[in-house]
Amino acid sequence: MIERLTSSDLDGALDDLAGILHACVHDGASVGFILPFPPEQARAYWLNHVWSGVAGNELDLFVVRNAQHVLGTVQLIPAKMPNQPHRADVAKLLVHPNARHQGLGRALMAALEERAAQLGRNVLVLDTRSSDPSLRLYQSLGFQIAGEIPNYCRNPFDDRLEPTTFMYKNLH
Rank of each mutant, 00 (worst) to 15 (best):
N57D: 15
P163S: 10
L124M: 13
D132Y: 06
L61G: 04
I34N: 14
L93R: 08
D159L: 05
L161N: 01
I145K: 07
P133K: 03
P36N: 11
E162T: 01
C153K: 06
D89S: 09
D9E: 02
S8H: 03
S140G: 12
L5I: 11
F62C: 13
G105C: 00
N48C: 04
P150G: 03
P82F: 03
V125R: 12
R136K: 15
H172S: 11
L108C: 07
R154P: 04
D159R: 12
F33N: 10
L59G: 09
R115T: 13
M167L: 07
G56C: 05
L10Q: 10
A13H: 14
N66K: 11
Q102R: 14
C24K: 04
V95M: 06
A146I: 08
I2G: 07
R136L: 13
Q144V: 14
F166N: 07
L137R: 07
L112F: 01
L61S: 04
P85M: 08
I20R: 07
A67Q: 15
I20G: 01
I149C: 08
A23W: 03
P133M: 02
L47Y: 00
H96T: 04
L112M: 11
R136A: 15
V54N: 01
G120M: 02
A116I: 02
G142A: 01
F157Q: 11
P38Y: 02
L93G: 05
L21K: 06
D158P: 00
H172W: 06
E40V: 01
P36D: 05
T128Q: 06
R100A: 03
G72Q: 06
Q84K: 09
L161P: 03
D15R: 08
R121L: 06
L21D: 01
V63I: 14
T128R: 01
V74Y: 01
H172A: 10
V70S: 04
M109K: 07
G28I: 15
A13F: 05
F62G: 13
Q139H: 07
R100C: 04
G105T: 10
V64E: 05
R4P: 04
L137E: 02
N155M: 09
D11H: 03
G147I: 06
P82Q: 11
A44C: 11
E162C: 12
T73Q: 15
L137N: 09
H101M: 11
N83H: 15
V50F: 01
P85W: 09
V64Y: 08
T165L: 03
L119W: 01
G19N: 12
D9H: 12
A117H: 07
R154M: 03
A55Y: 08
L14A: 10
L93T: 08
G12L: 01
M167H: 07
H49S: 13
G147S: 04
Y152M: 10
D27N: 13
W46I: 10
I77L: 14
D11F: 00
D158T: 04
P156G: 14
F33W: 11
F166M: 12
F143A: 04
A44G: 13
Q102S: 10
V70T: 06
V95K: 03
